[in-house]
Amino acid sequence: MSTVANQQGLTDKGLGYKAHSIGGFRFERDEYFAHIFYPGGRHIMPVDAFLRALMRDVAWGFFYGTVNFDNVFGTVNHYGTVEMFIGLFNEAYRSTNRHHVETFESKDLKKVFEQMLQDWVNEGFDPFAAPDETGAPFGAKKGNNTKAIQRQRMVADRMVGLPGDLGYRTDQNGYPLNRQFQDIPTDQPEVHAEPGFEKDVHAYNFFNYVARSDVTWNPSVVSCVKDSQFCATTEEHILPITHGNDRVEWFIQATDEIIWDIDDRATGKPRAKVVMKAGDVAAMPADIRHRGYSPKRSILIVWENNDGTLPQKYASGQLKPYPVEF
């Protein structure tokens, strides 16, 4: 298995980018496109869409289930290993046996993806930012943006702001209110803890914390009840991937509006559109894939069950793909 970056690519135009390979896959980029070569074919994606999807896949550690970069290319997380595929969840590729799948150790694929981000993300382009907040990724290689691509996912053990737990976002530590959340109330709750109970009597401004997120479509854990995780995120523009669930997850729309396209997880056939406004709650069944559109930056709570046994239980049919029967 090769995980090295090759100096010379098949599409090389002297733009300064390296080719990156792992197994039978080889990735190259030019001014506008990412080219994915695999045994039996070649796939092409707009490089801005590719880099935004790649950034999420790396930052989320391949996430829960399937990360579809588009309707052809993506990854499936098996929590230790990762399948990288062409056409695995595309009916046309499957029916003509043109799909291709390879399995890698998660750490090996993550390394290649990280090298690709480091090489292909130019100075001035932040793949985590909304398009209106960042420069363009196109053209010849020009510097890099290491700071943007090495952000760590934020995870609270118990709740944001508790002593010893995940800290607050403030102007002082580099997290100003986002430009589209200037009207979010930043008042603080009153907390009156008796001596000795400071680790238990606790409250904080959740909206103020989330509105200071400097990334989009990147949930961070704010509170936990055993395996129940509230993962809060700010969303703007389009979810850069189409997420294929390996378990039921839930969305709680805290502000504004997101419109979700829901397709069948296996075939990609459209099943529904879910329009969520502030206060709406909806389940995402375990047999769908979804992609969201947020016209204005909005606050979404992605509610996850982090039980590691769930993917096998859903895949085997032991659990039904929807959460409640009524």
Partner: peptide
């Protein structure tokens, strides 16, 4: 008595 908190819209309490 451990204490008390007062929360408004957007505040989360443990």
């Amino acid at each position: 008595k451990m204490g008390w908190v007062k929360i408004r819209r957007g505040h989360q309490a443990l």
